[in-house]
Computed example of a mutant assay.
Amino acid sequence: MQEKVRIGGLGGESLLFLTDDQLRGGIEAMFFAYRAFTSDPDLILEDMDYGRAHHRALHFINRGPGLTVTSLLDVLGVTKQSLNRVLRTLIEDGLVESRVGRRDRRERQLYLTEKGTALERRLSEAQRARMRAAYRAVGPQAVAGFRQVLEAMMDPETRAQYQSMKDQTDDRT
């Protein structure tokens, strides 16, 4: 079966015909790429009896110091019970600090400790190196196309959340 996918725009459209086998190949490439992308951090986390949920929490807390537990729940899309288990471990192990909110004392704001920052850096360095090498290998047009594909795969709510985080980063730079 073939599906027409319109690419381009503003009068310069061209049609891309994709077979189910080509789509399946893309799905498989995504699975293998994700496995490679997570392999280095997984080895580090395994030694600490942590999992990918710990890594994601560390990543997003590092990205937005003072992030509230509620905001982290929204970003990660996990249950409160699941996040509480992860945060409890990270706090007990001295990687994350939970502080009372400045505006709302009922809120808990999350910060990485020095130890947490060091671990997050270690986890993400290998991923950045892998992405940097891949981006250099394929060039700027492919990088832009890859990002467009990823964003197009997101549902509207997730895309809005992602865009909001990107905007916050742009505001800081």
Rank of each mutant, 00 (worst) to 15 (best):
residue 2 Q to L: 06
residue 3 E to F: 15
residue 4 K to W: 06
residue 5 V to S: 08
residue 9 G to I: 00
residue 11 G to Q: 03
residue 12 G to Q: 12
residue 14 S to V: 15
residue 16 L to M: 11
residue 20 D to I: 10
residue 22 Q to N: 06
residue 22 Q to K: 07
residue 24 R to S: 10
residue 27 I to H: 09
residue 28 E to Q: 12
residue 30 M to V: 10
residue 31 F to Q: 11
residue 33 A to T: 10
residue 34 Y to M: 12
residue 34 Y to I: 07
residue 35 R to I: 08
residue 36 A to P: 01
residue 36 A to S: 09
residue 38 T to H: 03
residue 39 S to R: 12
residue 39 S to A: 14
residue 40 D to I: 11
residue 42 D to H: 03
residue 43 L to N: 10
residue 45 L to M: 03
residue 46 E to Y: 10
residue 47 D to K: 15
residue 47 D to Q: 15
residue 48 M to C: 01
residue 48 M to L: 15
residue 49 D to M: 11
residue 51 G to N: 15
residue 51 G to Y: 06
residue 52 R to Y: 10
residue 54 H to M: 00
residue 55 H to F: 14
residue 58 L to F: 04
residue 58 L to P: 08
residue 60 F to N: 06
residue 61 I to K: 02
residue 63 R to A: 13
residue 63 R to G: 04
residue 63 R to K: 13
residue 63 R to S: 13
residue 63 R to W: 14
residue 64 G to P: 00
residue 64 G to V: 04
residue 67 L to M: 14
residue 69 V to S: 09
residue 72 L to C: 03
residue 72 L to S: 01
residue 72 L to H: 04
residue 75 V to Q: 02
residue 75 V to Y: 01
residue 76 L to N: 01
residue 77 G to C: 04
residue 77 G to S: 03
residue 78 V to H: 02
residue 78 V to A: 07
residue 79 T to C: 07
residue 83 L to G: 03
residue 85 R to N: 13
residue 85 R to L: 09
residue 87 L to P: 07
residue 90 L to P: 02
residue 91 I to T: 06
residue 96 V to N: 01
residue 99 R to Y: 00
residue 102 R to I: 10
residue 102 R to Y: 05
residue 103 R to S: 09
residue 105 R to K: 13
residue 110 L to E: 00
residue 110 L to W: 04
residue 111 Y to L: 11
residue 117 T to C: 04
residue 117 T to M: 14
residue 118 A to S: 10
residue 118 A to L: 07
residue 118 A to R: 08
residue 119 L to H: 06
residue 120 E to H: 12
residue 126 A to L: 07
residue 127 Q to W: 01
residue 129 A to I: 04
residue 132 R to M: 05
residue 137 A to F: 01
residue 137 A to H: 03
residue 138 V to K: 10
residue 141 Q to G: 13
residue 142 A to R: 15
residue 146 F to Y: 08
residue 146 F to A: 14
residue 149 V to A: 14
residue 150 L to C: 08
residue 163 Q to D: 15
residue 164 S to F: 08
residue 164 S to G: 08
residue 165 M to I: 02
residue 168 Q to D: 14
residue 169 T to Q: 12
residue 171 D to S: 13
residue 171 D to C: 03
residue 173 T to A: 13
